[in-house]
């Protein structure tokens, strides 16, 4: 474990050396997502300044939901973006073989191979939203709540990664996994708003099937002092279970790969 952490540090240092070499790209890449987030946020602001609340949620409360899911997404974006490209960049070209002849875990190698700076913008936006929301609402941050926030963001990030890992594994069969990943990934758009605005079926799906609800709605509810019962505490459990499942799926994919090598 310690070995992998220090190895990750080495990969990260080398990755930043590359990024610094293309400084303009680095700046454009890491700030570009801010524009997309701004579009979504401006929309919410433009609309909500004319109505008292969205299904009982004030503007600043919606920002907390939006901020949490953006933070969770940024964790995945920074540390696991290579899952998107596994098909066309690694499997199809045969580059994946390189990971298998190295004495480290191939999944670790895949993820460590490319820290993605494009996620930094999302992280900044998410953090700014949480700060703005809690300042406007006058939230009191006890140590327990800070700990809760950190664990919520990490669990949310893990949910994103696990879902992407499951869909990315299809690359071992299909060569190209981006279409499948894209469809599942995009359901996180639902989680930018209170789940209570949707039909019951949709919120059930986002809770138990594609559990992005635990990356935004439930932890935000808890932080805002709304009662969602045990759901407030299930996030880490759901994340851990999903990670375990996704790793099993990944192993099945690896086994298939070692059977066909394609």
């Amino acid at each position: 474990m310690i070995r992998y952490l220090s190895l990750y540090r080495e990969f990260l240092i080398q990755r930043f050396k590359i990024l610094m070499e293309y400084r303009v790209n680095f700046i454009i890449g890491s700030t570009s997502t801010i524009f997309v987030q701004a579009a979504g946020l401006l929309t919410i602001w433009v609309v909500m300044r004319q109505i008292p609340s969205l299904n009982g949620w004030s503007f600043d409360e919606v920002l907390m939901i939006y901020g949490l899911v953006t933070l969770a997404k940024s964790i995945n974006h920074m540390f696991a973006d290579n899952l998107w490209t596994i098909g066309w960049y690694y499997v199809r070209s045969g580059g994946f073989d390189r990971f298998l002849v190295r004495p480290i875990d191939p999944l670790f190698h895949l993820l460590a191979d490319r820290f993605c700076h494009d996620g930094i913008g999302n992280f900044l936006v998410g953090a700014a939203l949480v700060v703005k929301s809690s300042v406007s609402l006058g939230l009191v941050w006890t140590p327990l709540k800070v700990l809760y926030l950190v664990s919520a963001v990490l669990s949310g990030g893990a949910i994103f990664m696990a879902l992407n890992l499951i869909t990315a594994t299809s690359a071992f069969w299909l060569m190209e996994s981006i279409p499948v990943t894209q469809v599942i990934f995009n359901t996180h758009e639902f989680a930018k708003y209170p789940l209570s605005i949707y039909h019951k079926g949709i919120s059930l799906i986002l809770t138990w099937l594609i559990p992005y609800g635990f990356a935004s709605f439930y932890p935000a509810s808890y932080l805002l002092g709304r009662d969602v019962g045990a759901m407030a505490w299930l996030g880490p459990v759901v994340a851990a279970m999903l990670l375990a499942i996704s790793y099993r799926v990944w192993l099945v994919g690896l086994r298939h790969y070692s059977g066909t090598g394609s």
Binding site: G29, S32, I34, V36, A39, G40
Partner: peptide, 15 residues
């Protein structure tokens, strides 16, 4: 960095 350029363009245009 074409990815970043297009993302900026999409973001501004979307709104």
């Amino acid at each position: 960095e074409t990815w970043g350029l297009s993302v900026v363009r999409e973001g501004v245009a979307a709104f």
